[in-house]
């Protein structure tokens, strides 16, 4: 890992902790951004952590760009020794894989896809060495995922699967981005899953849809009354495959204000995870579903 600093015009400093994705890079980025927040540097207006990088927006009339750069570098060395452990929550997200709405959309944009004659799921299964789309779906939801970034549009989470590199699933983004994606599509690009919080453009492959809103500017959804955005970096997610009947049932519950996502408080420690991935994931599952 080699940290690279670059100015994004006169108002941003962009910091790439590593070129490639890893939880080590995520935790280092998180530690530095936490240190920046704790330092309450005058002139810093936005602190945005990402998967393996982060960005600081500042007012150059208040703090000189070079002075802020030096300050960030000093915080980087202090952050090296920070604990890679967080108190967080694990949340079950229901997913209706291979649903009719994303299917309709992906057929409409076939000319922008690597495989114009197939579907996104069949393509993803094939290039990741699975016999069938069903096998790929199982690999997608068997292990928990880690929210390593929130962004793109309103409250959209990027998720990284909690497995070793050899078991990671990878797919390219669409050749040309779509101009439409159904709201709450579960997507995939690079090694990341995402949930499209709102309807709109998108370049990730589409695998399914969740009935559970994750962004509500009107704050009418019962679990979004405190804040309109559901996810934050560090959240852990377990995808739960559901069928049409359950999808409809949850939609009705959300509408009625009676749906509450299943979740549990957990600790995540990167060192313990790296030492025993399957054991750590088993414990996460026990926290969510009971031993």
């Amino acid at each position: 890992m080699k940290t690279r600093y670059s100015f994004g015009g006169d108002e941003h400093i962009f910091v790439e902790v590593d070129e490639e994705m890893s939880l080590d890079a995520f935790f280092k980025s998180l530690s530095i951004t936490n240190a920046v927040r704790d330092s309450a540097i005058e002139g810093v207006t936005e602190i945005c952590p990402a998967n393996a990088s982060f960005q600081i927006k500042y007012d150059p009339d208040v703090i000189a760009p070079d002075a802020l750069l030096e300050k960030l570098k000093s915080l980087e060395s202090a952050a090296e020794n920070a604990e890679k452990r967080i108190g967080t929550r694990i949340v079950e997200i229901p997913v209706y894989y291979n649903d009719p709405w994303t299917h309709e959309t992906l057929m409409r944009f076939r000319d922008r896809h690597q495989d114009p004659d197939g579907t996104d799921l069949d393509y993803a299964a094939r290039i990741n060495g699975f016999e069938t789309a069903e096998d790929f779906i199982v690999a997608h939801h068997s292990n928990p995922w880690f929210v390593s970034m929130v962004g793109f549009v309103s409250g959209l989470p990027f998720l990284y699967q909690l497995v070793e590199r050899e078991r990671q699933l990878q797919v390219p983004k669409y050749l040309r981005p779509r101009t439409d994606t159904p709201k709450l599509t579960v997507g995939y690009g690079g090694c990341f899953s995402c949930i499209y919080s709102v309807r709109g453009a998108g370049g990730y492959q589409m695998f399914g849809i969740t009935p559970m809103p994750i962004y509500d500017p009107t704050q009418e959804v019962n679990y979004l009354k405190d804040f309109m955005v559901f996810f934050k970096p560090g959240d852990i997610v377990k995808w739960n495959p559901i069928d049409r009947e359950e999808y409809d049932r949850i939609c009705a519950e959300v509408e009625a204000g009676t749906f509450t996502p299943r979740m549990a408080e957990v600790e995540f420690d990167l060192e313990s995870f790296n030492a025993d991935i399957d054991g750590t994931n088993r414990k996460l599952m026990e926290a969510l579903y009971g031993a």
Binding site: F14, M21, A50, K57, Y160, G189
Partner: peptide, 16 residues
């Protein structure tokens, strides 16, 4: 790793 196969792809980052 994690960026995607096109040379213009990066591991998803912030945009200024």
């Amino acid at each position: 790793f994690g960026a995607g196969s096109d040379p213009s792809n990066i591991v998803d980052s912030c945009y200024p």
